[in-house]
Simulated assay, not measured.
Amino acid sequence: MSSHIDERSTQDRPDDAVYAQRTRLRATRWPDAPEDAGWSLGTDLDQLRDLVVHWAESFDWPAQEAALARLPRFRVPLGGLGIHFVHAKAVAPAGPVLPLVLSHGWPDSFWRYSKVIPLLTDPGAHGADPADAFDVVVPDMPGFGYSDRPVGRPLDSIAVAGLWAELMTVLGYERFGAAGGDVGSHVSRCLGLDHPDRVVAVHRTDGGLPVFTGDPADLTPEERTWMEAVAAWSGTEGAYAAIHRTKPQTAAFGLNDSPAGLAAWIVEKLRAWSDCGGDVERSFTKDEILTNITLYWLTGTIGSSMRMYSANAAIPPAQLARRVEVPSGFSIFAGDIVRPPRAWLERTTNMVRMTEPPRGGHFAAFEEPEIYAEELRAFFRPYRAAAA
């Protein structure tokens, strides 16, 4: 491993930060809510109170932090920023090892892939073929998790893809696979677009928001129906994204100051986007939810993570409409949001495989790690020799 990669602990946080967090949680100034509003107007008041009480009185952050610390984690300077990443190498491989960079989305970090990493690096220990082992690299995007926050303009997905290509060079990987969801789907797409000589294949769990610059008459009925559904979803569920794109700094003042407010902002998305049937704890335990939220709280990265939306909103439509010619695969999970039709994926990528797993949502790698791992194994199997 390159000598300028820092292997020192990246997870240590002073005890007084946790104490201060608990003090703030206990002093939360709760809003009122209409009777029986539930989740219809946003985060449910009673359920958030319950989560906040657990956070303040029972949640064991040091134990959760120690579990994350068992992952092989590092920092490296890239583009003037310290980038935190997991680098987990294949265990007892029985053939060519494929390097794989996994890109997370919002609102999360390397946390998204914490369950699936062992399944990918050591498939033989989990009932799968040892020949399907990966070297797994999971970076925190700039402004997320333990990576540095850009001090100037936020980086867009194109720039982040360039950093990931540089990171894979630093780690000694000339050719590799790329996979991701949410914002990470966009970053993986950009890796395939801008580094096709290095990326052997791209796997994604969504097709991104539709950008079409051609004649609408050329769209299939299924594509038009999907675009109408996306527009309807944006109208009812997309207020958060509009704020992130246009006025992220305004929201950041409150979210960075109030842990209860931060929890409300994030848990509502975990519930709405996961395959939980309206009960968020079907997809995530309280401790899993709070581990994700605590990472945001202790690193102070909610504002910087939201600003990436504004950077991506400035990408020219012509860039967003480019077709990915690198072999592309999609696992469109049953519980995800605005699921794209096959025709759109074929129009926008060199799609060689599409599956529709019967359960799992927007956070599939965390919700259904076994299914997600098998999706990656099956898709990338034909491309292993290309990276050898």
Rank of each mutant, 00 (worst) to 15 (best):
P107I: 06
T121W: 02
V116A: 02
F85S: 05
T23E: 15
F134T: 00
D32W: 11
P118W: 05
P77C: 08
T28K: 05
D135W: 02
A56N: 08
G42K: 05
D50Y: 07
W30L: 11
A88Q: 10
H87A: 10
S114F: 04
G105T: 06
D46G: 15
V137Q: 04
G124R: 01
A90T: 03
L48R: 05
P99I: 01
V53I: 14
P118Y: 05
H126Y: 15
P72M: 02
R29Y: 06
G105I: 03
Y113C: 11
S40D: 11
Q47W: 14
A125I: 02
L102S: 04
H126I: 06
R24S: 14
P118N: 09
I83V: 15
A37L: 12
S109V: 06
L68S: 01
H54D: 10
A56Y: 07
L48D: 09
G105D: 09
W106A: 02
G124C: 04
P130W: 00
L100P: 04
W106G: 06
A63M: 05
W106H: 11
T43Q: 12
A56L: 10
A133P: 00
F74S: 13
T43H: 12
H54T: 09
L45F: 09
A37S: 13
W111V: 08
A63K: 03
H84W: 03
P72N: 07
D32V: 15
G124F: 03
T28G: 14
W39F: 11
V136I: 14
